[in-house]
Write a protein that binds this DNA or RNA. Structure first.
Lengths: 131, 131
DNA sequence: AGACATTACATGCGTACGCATCTAATGTCT
DNA sequence: AGACATTAGATGCGTACGCATGTAATGTCT
């Protein structure tokens, strides 16, 4: 017999959706209102800032984020347009594009990170982990 | 001290996102390929079929689904266009619109429900509940 | 080396979304 | 009753998304 009886699966899914949308909407609102950043943009910036060498290839970012390849490509393009990252062709593999946060990008990330953390604390904080 | 130390919140959020996107994408694919239904459309239909009187007002649906009011309005419009539900003005409160699934709507829901359940079982089944 | 597959990323396209706003109906307060 | 607020739902608008495809570079196989 399964860990969770079949009838509960739907309920589990509903709760997962509810939690996800709650947090996701709150993040979207807070980040975009206070820092003009979307969730995808913040996540991308976050991955970059926290990456070991301070830069990542687009396909490396793709492995760490829940976006289609095309959506990621455009997210990076948006970030570049705003001067938050730079794109550079890789010399070894000229198909690959490495993405590096600019000073401004790091500054904005540092500014937005507390907002991000606060929202998570608000909406994920007192809950016991369960979905 | 909180149930979950602060540093873990980000990790919790990442896992929640991962789980949500995994299930959500799988549902979207399965439902749209096999039944030409989006997740929002299925959820709406599901609420209707399972509602006590077999019909709901739009604002009642809104309370049970994670969609903005405008998105819900359009989802219902899409369902009506495909002949899966009918919209009717309420006589008591002429602002309200009640939504009723048609025979075809019920049939399609019955057809899609097992697909829905199977995807949930696949993607949520063996996991211990946790986010 | 040449043919074919694969990988990395960009882009055209259609669609569903949220926000803001609009209209109409109902509720409230004096 | 008349003025103002609120509620229900529809719609204009801009945007981010995924899918399919395009382009270029790299890998593989004979």
């Amino acid at each position: 017999m399964p860990l969770t009886p079949d009838g509960d699966l739907c309920e589990r899914w509903r709760q997962l959706m509810a939690r996800y949308h709650d947090v996701s909407c709150a993040l979207e609102r807070a980040l975009s209102q206070q820092h003009e950043l979307g969730v995808s943009e913040f996540e991308t910036l976050d991955l970059l800032v926290k990456s070991p060498y301070g830069k990542q290839f687009v396909h490396e970012l793709h492995a760490g984020i829940h976006l289609s390849q095309s959506a990621l490509s455009r997210t990076v393009a948006r970030l570049e347009k705003r001067g938050l990252v730079t794109r550079a062709m890789c010399t070894n593999d000229r198909r690959a594009v490495s993405v590096t946060p600019t000073e401004e990008g790091r500054r904005l990330h540092a500014e937005a990170a507390p907002t991000h953390a606060a929202v998570l604390a608000d909406h994920l904080g007192e809950l016991q982990p369960q979905a």
